[in-house]
Simulated scan of single mutants.
Amino acid sequence: MSRPYADIGRTGQKRRTLDALVAAARQLIASGASPTVDDAAVIAGVARSTAYRYFPGQRELLAAAHPETARTSLLPESPPADVADRLDAVVVEFTRMILESEAQQRTMLRLSLEQTLDEQRGLPLRQGRAIAWLTEALSPLQGQMEERDIHRLVLAIRSATGIESLVWLTDVGGLSREEAVASQRWSAGALLNQALTQGPRPTGD
């Protein structure tokens, strides 16, 4: 596999150029735009031909500009042992991160709804990062529940959290952002409690 353009040659200068393009893309996304590589190049003061060496297309640019890209875990440094506390800690961090980058998150959501299935797979919101974060939070359930049931629980919790839920709760439900976050935390905890006390949800078979 060939090395990324930014990792070859004058890496210091290339890193600054890359950072400028990503910063420009984030600025445009925060304003509600769906920036192209050309748009980012103009804002960053970078030649179009140079910008395309870093980002072949809009999809790659948006993925690099997304604030969640580098996160591998949302648990605190010393995570709690209790599964309910672990889940709540992850949901709190997840919602905090979304609120800090709400404009970008809304733009990504809109793009994911407008594009084809093949195009959606390249967008950050379709990379399943939240699924991994929630699965890690629920890891104490391993041995108590079957893997497929843990996964179903993770999917249920994900459906009640994230930017999609925030948009519905605030734009349609009329809640404040603080109320929306509280609702997501309550829903996640309620789903976990349901699974622990009543067993996994029906499969629908």
Rank of each mutant, 00 (worst) to 15 (best):
86 R>G: 00
195 A>K: 05
20 A>P: 06
181 V>N: 06
197 T>V: 14
97 M>I: 13
200 P>Q: 07
67 P>H: 00
176 S>A: 12
198 Q>P: 04
140 P>W: 02
145 M>E: 10
201 R>G: 14
134 L>Q: 11
187 S>E: 03
161 T>C: 11
176 S>C: 01
39 D>W: 02
44 A>G: 05
163 I>W: 03
10 R>Q: 06
59 R>V: 14
88 D>N: 06
171 D>L: 05
79 P>K: 00
90 V>A: 02
3 R>G: 13
55 F>Y: 11
57 G>R: 07
82 D>C: 01
118 D>N: 07
178 E>M: 01
147 E>Q: 09
54 Y>A: 06
166 L>T: 12
118 D>C: 02
86 R>F: 00
165 S>T: 11
47 A>K: 09
77 E>Y: 00
23 A>S: 02
64 A>P: 02
6 A>Y: 14
201 R>C: 05
166 L>I: 08
59 R>F: 10
56 P>M: 06
193 N>H: 15
127 Q>R: 15
77 E>S: 00
62 L>M: 01
55 F>R: 01
51 A>W: 03
166 L>M: 13
165 S>H: 06
119 E>T: 07
102 E>D: 03
143 G>S: 09
138 L>P: 00
164 E>N: 12
110 R>N: 14
59 R>M: 04
92 V>D: 01
144 Q>D: 15
75 L>W: 00
56 P>G: 06
33 A>M: 12
12 G>Q: 12
38 D>V: 04
166 L>S: 15
45 G>M: 08
196 L>E: 04
156 A>E: 08
84 A>C: 03
132 A>R: 07
10 R>K: 08
53 R>P: 11
126 R>D: 15
120 Q>W: 09
186 W>G: 14
145 M>L: 08
141 L>D: 09
177 R>E: 07
130 A>K: 04
103 A>D: 13
44 A>N: 01
164 E>A: 11
13 Q>T: 15
177 R>M: 11
173 G>T: 08
199 G>Q: 04
63 A>P: 03
54 Y>H: 02
42 V>F: 09
